[in-house]
Amino acid sequence: MIEVQNLTRYYGDFPAVQDITFRVREGEILGVLGLNGAGKSTIFKVLAGLLPPSSGSVAIDGIQVMSAPFELRARIGFLPEDPPLYRDMTVRGFLTHMGRLRGLSKHQVHQRVTDVMALTDLTDRAHQVIATLSHGFRKRVGIAQSVLHNPRLVLLDEPISGLDPVQIVEMRKVIRKLGQGRAVLVSSHILSEISQTCDRILVMHQGRLVALGTEQELAGRLGTSSIRLTVRGDASALDTWLSEHHAVASHKMLDEEPPFAAAHIILEGDVREPFLPEVIEAGFGLRLVQTPEDDLEGIFLQLTRDEVTE
């Protein structure tokens, strides 16, 4: 439903985004991952119709952004990193105003505002002035206004930045709910968030698309996979065995109380299935196999490093 073809955007002579191509399906949450200045916000602004592309095309349901900008505004909801809000208004008052501005009738807007406040858990704050809300609730109001008109595509630029851990957990639920029946693009530089919230990941670096796929696909593309292994056995024996194993690209021993031993292991390709029986055959008691939480971070760093090297 959303098709971006060879999108390029220059600021003067500086290419903020170069030759980006991707598609997003209905019901899919696509994470856009990149360091600051990678071009994430530029892509979002082009998709939101706030910036014209220097070249390339962006189509939503087959409609080109440049050919029908007003028609497309009804199909897009956009939340910038700093949510734009009229802070002197109450939550309901603001959402009602925005709903009316986006073309909903008086009758429609009342029901729709009630629905989006329920979706974003704002019902209890309906009559609170926005200026008095916490940062997390302001983000929710921003999200609520971005989906008021039931858009086909929702763009959330850094939706979790500045939130505390409790708010982050709640925001994940909200984003998941948004993905039902529409396409959602979420940008972030927080890798674990992208991993937990999104169906696929688009990795950007210096304005270019470096990789696109699920976390597993990205790991497979790199030809490596990593695991955190905990066994019953001698730590030095495990260290030696891992050092001599042909499928182990590298490993790092982790602190563990005897009689257990643990290591973070990077394998040559996704050979986890044949590798684990060999651990048992080598005489170690298999206790725990985990995907390390920083796996995506490793993938990201390697992808961006490869890009720089190329």
Binding site: G49, I76, F78, P84, L101, G103
Partner: peptide, 14 residues
């Protein structure tokens, strides 16, 4: 200055 122009620029208002 407050960034709320985005609300107008993404609305159907010309």
């Amino acid at each position: 200055s407050t960034g709320t122009d985005v609300l107008l620029r993404t609305s159907p208002a010309s």
